[in-house]
Design a protein around this nucleic acid. Sequence first.
DNA 1: TTTTGAGTTGTTCGA
DNA 2: GTCGAACAACTCAAA
Length: 435
Amino acid sequence: MKNPIAIHWFRRDLRMEDNHALSRAIQSGKPVLCIFIFDKLILDKLENKADRRLTFIHSTLEELNRQLQSKGSSLNTFYGEPLDVWKEIVSQFTVSEVFCNRDYEPYARERDKTIYEFLGSKGIAFHGYKDHVIFEKSEVVKDDGLPYTVFTPYSKKWKSKLHAQSFDAFPSIPSPEQLVPIQKEIHSLESMGFRLDGFGDYPAAQTSLSIIQNYHTTRDIPSIRGTSRLSLHLRFGTVSIRALARIGFSENEKWLNELIWRDFYQMIIYQFPDSVHRAFKPAYDRIPWRNAPHEFEAWCEGKTGYPIVDAGMRELNATGFMHNRVRMITASFLTKHLLIDWRLGERYFAKQLLDFDLASNVGGWQWAASSGCDAAPYFRVFNPALQTEKFDKDHRYIKQWIPEFGTTAYVKPIVEHTIARDRVLKTFKAALQQD
DNA sequence: TTTTGAGTTGTTCGA
DNA sequence: GTCGAACAACTCAAA
């Protein structure tokens, strides 16, 4: 019988440095095998065969594989349903322990429970660690032990709990003798029915200090690079949240707050998994959404006739990214001006956003629809013209994405602002007044 | 248990 | 142009 090994299962922690579970796997003293599973259940749902996120994951895995190959090992990739893959793995290897970092999304928790039970039935330990957030689950709760649903007191408690050790990096670059000596190539996209997305230009996994330092003054202007563009890397764990929190703590509290919002929504999705599908405030599920298909289509394509909205949607469609200020404007427009269910907008963003993160996306959409925790009051309806005046006065952003802006070729507004505003206020008021 | 102050990102109206 | 109030009460968190 071969020596038992430990396995590190990469999921949304695609980096070697400062990786909590990987560090623990190395500390186990057993030879470590690094694996990644292309989850068929997830891939089968992707409509685009040249998916940008899958391309990003794939290129990141190739880099991880190069790093491991330089040490005489490799990243072992698998393709299939996770439980089937794990059955295959334990038949191939003598495994004594499996290490991974926790994922708080409902699907991931269900998956991990299944794997935990399967591995347990084989006498294999399955260890989960906190890596994706600074504080998780019930680490930041009210004095009565219940979870917060309001951000500001949550953030105060979060900050009061902060210790230097929260930022400490986990030593986790393995040496060759700590790895299982197997050399393999990773699965090709083609072998799974996909192909490379041609775009290939991803924001770097680092940002400039000056962007973080000036964040509070420039973050709302979509035509300039005032945000850190790290969301993609936080999504897939190609940067360490601890490293970023350390920078935020020392450089800019406003920017640190954004990381706390991320922890907050990760906590909310863990504590209230139903909020993925249902309004956090139940009364808001009584709203009679209009859901006009041709209006939804116009919004998706950036053809509403409201330049700031259309510019945002076109940026999203072209690049897989949208500036945060414009995410709020487009979300407000869909839910309030067009009275289209926030879930439809949430699903469209989920499909298009390179940095898509379920917890933050649902949180943001419910905030815009006024149905979420700590959401904007329902009578707060963004006025696209005023938002443009405030944040894109010279139309630099709009012109960047709408070449026909200002010409007769540009579409007429899909709905008149004052009429839409009155309509949504009446509709929400009536729905929320019911008993 | 009761009370009190507060609550990401806004808009409109009228003085 | 500028400013404060209204928008709608309600729920949350903490004392």
